[in-house]
Amino acid sequence: MELSICIPIFNFDVRELIAGLKKEIETNGIDAEIILIDDASDLSFNQMNASLQDNVQHLIFLEENIGRSKIRNLFLQYARGKYLLFLDCDVKIDSEKFLQNYLSNIKQRPDIELIYGNFKIATQYAATLRNRYSVEREIFSGAQSTDFSLFKTVNFIIKKNIFEKFPFNEEMTDYGYEDFIFAKLLELNKVKFLAINNPVIHFDDTTNGVFLRKAEIGMNSLFKLSESGQNNVFIKDIKVYKVAMKLRQLKLSSLFLFAYGIFEDSIKKNLLSEHPHMKCFDFYKLGVLIRKMK
């Protein structure tokens, strides 16, 4: 088996995504299997996706939610492929040659152990804070790159033996930074990386208010990581953490929090508006993190 397509599901209808993948697999005779693991979704989504049972190699419904890191590692128990392609459930295929693009790059560069494929934003959600952040801070341009900092878990392919050696950190049970820590672990261990523009379309309808709450959870996850010195090698390059530590070293944390408190309501008002500004989001995250550090 050349390729195992691994899709963790949570509260999303993946039938269109699977149809697109199946069409390419069958049209081109690709040696691939599709594995779906549902992380305790609501019953309505389970019922929708249950119809895929006969169209995929495995469809597993978990009774309890185990989180973003642990569920990805769980695919190792089922996958037979030499390569594992991980896709978020809230995406759709953008090209009829999506899988072939990955496989041709693998054929050309068999030394590459991890390829990140990038993503696009569905136009109907492009104006939200979450997706404006993706466009300005996460989506890369250009045909290829070897910059490991570009990596996101939404769409990537990895050699199975590498993933067995370097799985996701299952101690990270809350939202935030599991992809960054995973990428840093691989980079530190000199895993050969390539980013190519082979995107999926991301359908993320997260509201601004929900994304702010997720950002706060993410800052809490980062704070927990910072409490252990052994994690410094993984988090030292995270921009918000670097700024927070610099303010702390200069004994300016209290002054920053005083200023942040004055503008906090205005910052939140902007971030909840139809025209959120990324600089406001940067200050919001920094304020949340420094408060936790205090």
Rank of each mutant, 00 (worst) to 15 (best):
213 R>Y: 11
214 K>M: 14
215 A>D: 01
215 A>Q: 00
215 A>I: 01
215 A>T: 01
216 E>V: 13
216 E>P: 09
216 E>G: 12
217 I>W: 05
218 G>T: 02
219 M>V: 08
220 N>E: 12
221 S>H: 05
222 L>E: 08
223 F>K: 03
223 F>S: 05
223 F>C: 02
223 F>W: 13
224 K>Q: 15
224 K>H: 15
225 L>G: 03
226 S>Y: 01
227 E>M: 11
227 E>H: 04
228 S>I: 05
228 S>W: 02
229 G>L: 09
230 Q>V: 12
231 N>W: 11
233 V>I: 15
233 V>T: 15
234 F>W: 10
234 F>M: 13
235 I>S: 04
235 I>G: 06
235 I>C: 02
235 I>H: 02
236 K>L: 02
236 K>V: 04
237 D>Q: 12
238 I>K: 00
238 I>M: 01
238 I>D: 00
239 K>W: 04
240 V>D: 09
240 V>N: 07
241 Y>L: 09
242 K>W: 02
242 K>R: 11
242 K>I: 00
243 V>K: 14
244 A>L: 03
245 M>K: 11
245 M>Q: 12
246 K>W: 09
246 K>Q: 14
247 L>W: 08
247 L>Q: 10
248 R>W: 10
249 Q>D: 07
250 L>S: 11
251 K>N: 12
252 L>M: 12
253 S>N: 09
253 S>Y: 06
255 L>R: 11
257 L>I: 06
258 F>Q: 09
258 F>E: 08
258 F>W: 08
258 F>M: 07
258 F>P: 03
259 A>P: 08
260 Y>S: 04
261 G>I: 01
261 G>Y: 04
262 I>V: 14
264 E>H: 13
264 E>T: 04
265 D>P: 15
265 D>H: 15
267 I>Q: 05
267 I>L: 08
267 I>N: 02
268 K>M: 09
268 K>N: 08
269 K>M: 13
269 K>A: 14
270 N>W: 08
271 L>H: 03
271 L>F: 08
272 L>H: 04
272 L>T: 04
273 S>E: 11
274 E>C: 03
274 E>K: 11
275 H>C: 08
275 H>F: 11
275 H>N: 15
276 P>L: 10
279 K>P: 01
279 K>D: 03
280 C>E: 01
282 D>W: 11
282 D>P: 06
283 F>Y: 09
284 Y>Q: 06
284 Y>A: 10
284 Y>D: 05
